[in-house]
Amino acid sequence: MPAPTNLVTPAKTEHYFNDEFVQQVRNTILERLELADNNNCDDELIYDRADVERLKSNDDWFIRRFLKWTPTSLSDAENVIHQALLWRKSIKINSWNESTFPAEFYQIAGCFSYLPDMEGHNLIIVRLRIHKKEPNSNQWLETLARHYFIHVLEQIVSKNPNRGFALIFDCHKASLSNVDLDMARFIISTLSNYYSGAIGYVCIYELPWIFNQIWRVVRSWLDDEAKKIVKFATISNINEIVDRNNLPDYMGGTCEKNYRHVPKGAPTLEELVISNDIFSNRKDIVKMNEHFQKLIKLS
């Protein structure tokens, strides 16, 4: 589906973006909570308390951001919101902050938010060449990396009400060693299921010819609506999408915003690993640190 030029006032007026429909969705979800309460169930066992408060407020964006551009029915919309809220509670998304994630993730700048494009979409840039699996990779580290991606999404969506985002997959100088199809599936699933009402488009930047077959595989995982919001760009025409004043330096831009900024209080990865008792062998921690230091230099 083509991305509207302005997410604040969509070009189309399907009932997903009709105030009355949004209120119907809110009422239906709150009725679900009331029913649970009448059955002596604590609504906090269903959704996170902070999300319940957002539902009860007049924050329509909190509902619209989850809903797909192509509307179907009230029951479908209710189920989308219900599943999204269950997911948010399961990963404890409202408990995260900038110091939840290690300083190295920020220094690597493999995924970061940036200034808006020509149409006002806030940008999230994912740099594929920075993605290399840690030699001693385990489930904890992979989950942390995935949660970091979600955190970047959540921050830019929640802090910019009624304003969608665009995702740029920067494939410049990437090689086959950077390809992670499991991560690709995760990103597609996350965007489709939990941010479909907020995403304007996905831009694949500087796709190497050796990735053509991989792209065909990834494209086969997309539904028809998702395929329509994918666009391609190269260094020669990226300025038609994003003004060079809003592009980072490595993409030929002149913007001086620091995309490697480390928030105050962010722990080191080693501190997190030790506090969570991830590696019992000191040598594994040393290898992990060496790996991430290489990525920082590469960035």
Results as ranks from 00 to 15, higher is better:
E98G: 09
S99F: 07
S99K: 15
S99Q: 14
T100W: 05
T100K: 09
P102H: 07
A103S: 15
A103Q: 10
A103K: 13
A103N: 03
E104I: 07
F105N: 02
F105I: 05
Y106L: 07
Y106Q: 02
Q107V: 03
Q107W: 01
Q107C: 08
I108A: 02
A109W: 01
A109G: 12
A109N: 07
A109F: 04
C111T: 11
F112H: 06
P116G: 03
P116A: 01
P116M: 00
P116I: 01
D117H: 02
M118D: 04
E119W: 11
E119L: 14
E119V: 12
G120Y: 02
G120C: 05
H121Q: 04
H121K: 11
N122L: 05
N122Y: 12
N122F: 13
L123I: 12
L123R: 05
L123D: 03
L123F: 05
I124V: 15
I125W: 00
V126K: 03
V126C: 06
R127K: 14
R127V: 13
L128R: 01
L128G: 01
L128I: 15
R129N: 13
R129H: 13
I130N: 14
I130L: 13
H131Q: 11
H131S: 06
K132C: 04
K132P: 01
K132N: 04
K132Y: 05
K132A: 08
E134H: 10
E134R: 08
E134D: 05
P135I: 14
S137Y: 06
N138E: 03
N138V: 06
Q139D: 12
Q139F: 10
W140F: 15
L141S: 10
L141D: 00
L141E: 01
L141T: 06
E142Y: 03
T143K: 05
T143N: 09
